[in-house]
């Protein structure tokens, strides 16, 4: 664990220290650094934001602006199983909305939310490019193609 100077004892993992070192002299490296943090934790914790702000000399307001601007970055953790429903046009015309609604109903959460037990989170994403398998969903990088509302329960049961 490493402490940054100036803030009241927030600490970050060694991994974050390495990420910051890697991008300290890269022009515009903050986005690349945030990518690595997002991949590592599934979101960008406030303590890490503060640390990167100091190390890479980017104001916190800018970091917050960047995180909220880009859909790939998240301020909140995801569920153990992150369900992403592709809402690309090809999936949409093949009924992705019905698939999404069924997930919402089964999990009793809305898009962008996480179930109370932290097991599932639900999100809409833009085209993943599996248009031949439309409508497609992704759960923790596993792609499920040719989805339909009645396949939703079947898929969810794999994770129960």
């Amino acid at each position: 664990m490493s402490h940054c100077e100036g803030c009241n004892g927030c600490s970050v993992d060694e991994k974050v220290v390495l990420i910051a070192k890697k991008y300290i002299s890269v022009d515009g490296g903050i986005i690349a650094a945030l990518h690595e943090v997002q991949d590592e934790y599934g979101y960008i914790p406030e303590s890490v934001q503060k640390y990167l702000s100091k190390e890479l000399d980017v104001p916190m307001s800018d970091i917050y602006g960047i995180i909220t601007f880009y859909s790939r970055f998240s301020l909140l953790p995801k569920g153990k199983y992150s369900i992403e429903v592709c809402m690309g046009t090809a999936c949409y015309v093949k009924g992705a909305e019905d698939v999404l609604n069924t997930f919402k109903d089964e999990l009793k959460i809305k898009e962008g939310e996480i179930t109370k037990d932290g097991k599932f989170s639900l999100e809409c994403i833009r085209c993943i490019g599996a248009c031949g398998l439309a409508p497609a969903i992704v759960i923790n990088e596993e792609v499920y193609g040719k989805m339909s509302p009645d396949k939703v329960r079947e898929v969810l049961s794999k994770y129960n």
């Binding site: 515009g28 986005i31 690349a32 945030l34 990518h35 601007f69 880009y70 859909s71 790939r72 833009r126």
Partner: peptide
């Protein structure tokens, strides 16, 4: 390489 972060 620079990675985009999901903004059309």
């Amino acid at each position: 390489l620079r990675l985009g972060a999901g903004a059309f």
